[in-house]
Design a binder for these strands. Structure first.
Length: 572
DNA sequence: GCCGTTTTCGGCCCGACTGTTTTCAGTCG
C-alpha cells in the first residue's frame, strides 16, 4: 500500500468524523496526518519496515495514527473506517460538497427533513421547508439552490496553464482601472500548483469600491458571490471563482503572504509567531502585548519578523520548508533560464507537425543548445511509430543536417521507445545501442495490475540502452489517473541503474509530480525536464515543467538538461 | 489526535462575509 492510499484513508476518516460532530482538533489531527504522509518523500512502508525508525517520529503522526497506519499496511483495511462508512449516510457527504453547505448545516437538514438525495434537498429548498428550520431562512435556501447548480456544473479544479490564461485575461482588464495602484495574483496560482481551484487577486487601490466595481465589470463575470468592504468574490464563466482583496500599501506584504498560502503554511507561520509573542494576520505582524505592528509592507519583512528568510511560493506547503529555512538551507530553485536542452520532441516522421529542421530552428530561437529527436516506436501504430529501418533513415537524415547546426545546436539521435505490454522494448537492443538518447515509455496496457506494470518499467530501467523513463506515471490531469505502478520500486531501481527520469512539461501531464520529484532528488536521480513537443509552440511548455520542478524543490544541479552538452553527455 | 526546555494537560491560526442571530454560528480560505 502506497503513501497516497494511506493518506486517502485518513482524509476520509477526517471527513466522516466531521459529520459525527467530533472534536474539531481531533478531525484536524487526521487531516494533518494524511497530509504528512501524502507529502512524504519516501515510502511509509519502508519506515515501518526499518527497525531503527518509528512512524511517530514524523511530525503530525502520533501513537494512534502510527498504529492505524501499521494496521492498514498489514491488513489493507481499517475497522474504524468501515464502521464510520456505515454510520454516515452517503448523501451527507454529497450535501457537504455543495458550496455554502458544510458538515453542520448538512447534518441538520438531513436529520430534520429526512433527505435521501440531492434531488430531495432541491425539493426541500423549493417547497420552503428548508427556510422553516431554525437557523435557516429564505436566503439560505436560495444559496443552497445556487450551490446545487454550481456543483452540477462540475466546478473541478482547472489546470495551472488554464488558470494562467484566465489570470492574464483578468489582469489585462484590471490594469485599465485607474483606482488600482498595485496588484498581484496570490493563492495556489502563485504557488504553481498543478491545478487551481480559484484565483486570488490582491490590490492596493485609492478607491476600493471602484476597484471592486471594475472587477464586477469583467466581461465573463456570471455572478457576485459576496462583496464586503475589503473583499469581493465573483464567479467567472460557469463556475470558476475569483476573489479580490483590497489592502493598504503598508499591509501588502502581509496580505500577499497570507493570501498566497497554503493554509497549512500559514498555520505554521502563525504558530512560530505565537511562540515569539507575535501575531500574524493579513494586515501585518504585531506584538501581542502592545499591538505594535513590526512588519507588513513586504513578504521579506514578514518572514524576517519571525526569524526566517523569504520562502519561495512554490515551497509553501508546510512540507519541509520551515526546517530548511531555519537551517539556512532553502534550495535556490531552478529557473527557465537555466535550461539548455530539450530531450523529448516529435516530428512529421510520426505524430509531430514539424520537420527536424523546423524543430531545430525553433529550439535555437528559444536559446537551447541541444535537443533530442524522439519519435515514437512502431508499437504506437496510430502515430505511425518507427520501425528499425525508418528510425535508421531518420538518423541518417540527422547525420546529414548536423553540419548545418555545428556550433549552434547539438541534435541527438533519439527514440521514444515503447515498453511493450508483455514486457521488453519495442525495438531490438542492437538498434537502441545506436541511439544517442533512448526514452522508454508506457503507452499501452496502462490498466494492467500493479505488479505487471511495475515489472515492465523495471525491465526498461535495467536495459542498458535506456537512458530515461518518460512520463513515468502516465497520468493526464483531470482526465486519466496514473498507472498503478510502485513508484518507490521504480525510483530505487532508477537510482541503482543510473537511469534518468523525466518531468514531462506538458501542462496536461506534469509527470512526475512535485512529491515524486522531491523523492527523486533525495535519491540523487537526475531529472530531465522535457516538452514532449509535437509542434513548434509545443516547445513553449517548458515553463510549466519549471514551475512543477520548483514545487519539487529542484535546483539547477538536480536537473540534467541545465548542464552544458559536454557535461550532459557524461550521464549517457 | 498531536504536541511539549514555560508543558504529560490544555492548548491547538486568524479573519471576512453572510444570514439569522439580538450577539453569533457556519462557511470559507
Amino acid at each position: 500500500m502506497d503513501n497516497s492510499t494511506i493518506a486517502n484513508v485518513f482524509d476520509e476518516l477526517a471527513e466522516l468524523l466531521e459529520f459525527k460532530g467530533e472534536n474539531p482538533f481531533r478531525i484536524r489531527a487526521y487531516s494533518q496526518g494524511a497530509k504528512a504522509i501524502r507529502d512524504l518523500d519516501e515510502s511509509v512502508a519502508d519506515i515501518v519496515a526499518d527497525p531503527n525508525r518509528k512512524l511517530s517520529d514524523l511530525a503530525g503522526i502520533g501513537k494512534t495514527l502510527a498504529e492505524k497506519t501499521e494496521t492498514l499496511l498489514q491488513s489493507g483495511s481499517l475497522p474504524q473506517l468501515e464502521k464510520l462508512r456505515e454510520e454516515v449516510p452517503e448523501v451527507l457527504i454529497q450535501m457537504a460538497r455543495v458550496p455554502g453547505l458544510g458538515a453542520k448545516k448538512a447534518a441538520k437538514l438531513q436529520k430534520e427533513l429526512d433527505i435521501d438525495s440531492l434531488a430531495d434537498l432541491r425539493a426541500a429548498c423549493e417547497s420552503g421547508s428548508v427556510a422553516k428550520i431554525k437557523g435557516f431562512g429564505e436566503k439560505t435556501a436560495q444559496a443552497i439552490l445556487d450551490g446545487l447548480a454550481i456543483a452540477e456544473q462540475a466546478a473541478e479544479r482547472i489546470r495551472w496553464a488554464e488558470g494562467d490564461a484566465l489570470a492574464r485575461s483578468i489582469g489585462r482588464h484590471m490594469e485599465s482601472c485607474p483606482a488600482i495602484e498595485t496588484m498581484q495574483w496570490a493563492g495556489s496560482y502563485r504557488r504553481g500548483r498543478e491545478t487551481i481551484g480559484d484565483l486570488d487577486l490582491l490590490v492596493v487601490a485609492s478607491d476600493r469600491n471602484a476597484a471592486m466595481d471594475h472587477l464586477e465589470a469583467y466581461g465573463d463575470r456570471s455572478q457576485t458571490i459576496a462583496r464586503g468592504d475589503t473583499k469581493i468574490s465573483i464567479r467567472v464563466g460557469k463556475a470558476f471563482q475569483v476573489d479580490m482583496r483590497c489592502v493598504d500599501a503598508n499591509q501588502f506584504g502581509a496580505a500577499l503572504q497570507y493570501f498566497t498560502g497554503s493554509q497549512a503554511h500559514n498555520v505554521h507561520t502563525r504558530r512560530i509567531a505565537k511562540d515569539k509573542g507575535l501575531k500574524i494576520n493579513e494586515y501585518g505582524v504585531f506584538r501581542v502585548d502592545d499591538e505594535t505592528q513590526i512588519a507588513g509592507a513586504t513578504e521579506e519583512d514578514v518572514y524576517a519578523a519571525i526569524g526566517l528568510p523569504w520562502i519561495a511560493p512554490e515551497l509553501r506547503e508546510d512540507r519541509n520548508e520551515f526546517k530548511l529555512a531555519a537551517a539556512g538551507e532553502l534550495p535556490e530553485l531552478i529557473t527557465e533560464d537555466d535550461i539548455r536542452g530539450d530531450l523529448h520532441m516529435h516530428t512529421t516522421a510520426t505524430d509531430g507537425q514539424n520537420t527536424i529542421r523546423e524543430m531545430a530552428d525553433a529550439a535555437i530561437a528559444r536559446g537551447l543548445k541541444y535537443i533530442a529527436i524522439t519519435d515514437h516506436s512502431k508499437r504506437v501504430t496510430m502515430a505511425m511509430g518507427l520501425d528499425a529501418d525508418r528510425l535508421r533513415d531518420q538518423w541518417a537524415m540527422i547525420d546529414e543536417i548536423r553540419p548545418e547546426y555545428e556550433g549552434k545546436l547539438v541534435i541527438l539521435k533519439g527514440i521514444e521507445c515503447d515498453i511493450l505490454e508483455s514486457g521488453g522494448m519495442d525495438l531490438p537492443d542492437d538498434v537502441l545501442a545506436e541511439a544517442d538518447w533512448v526514452l522508454a515509455s508506457v503507452h499501452y496496457g496502462q490498466r494492467q495490475p500493479r505488479e505487471k506494470i511495475t515489472e515492465r518499467i523495471l525491465g526498461a530501467i535495467e536495459n542498458e540502452h535506456v537512458d530515461c523513463i518518460a512520463h513515468p506515471t502516465g497520468r493526464l490531469i483531470n482526465r486519466r489517473p496514473p498507472y498503478d505502478v510502485d513508484m518507490d520500486a521504480v525510483m530505487k531501481a532508477a537510482a541503482a541503474n543510473g537511469t534518468l527520469m523525466e518531468l514531462n512539461a506538458n501542462p496536461a501531464r506534469l509527470d512526475l509530480n512535485d512529491v515524486h520529484l522531491a523523492a527523486a532528488k533525495k535519491l540523487g536521480i537526475p531529472i530531465v525536464i522535457s516538452t514532449d513537443a509535437h509542434t513548434l509552440d509545443g516547445l513553449d511548455v517548458m515553463q510549466y515543467g519549471i514551475k512543477q520542478a520548483r514545487r519539487g524543490g529542484l535546483t539547477k544541479a538536480d536537473v540534467a538538461n541545465t548542464k552544458t552538452f559536454k557535461q550532459f553527455a557524461k550521464l549517457l
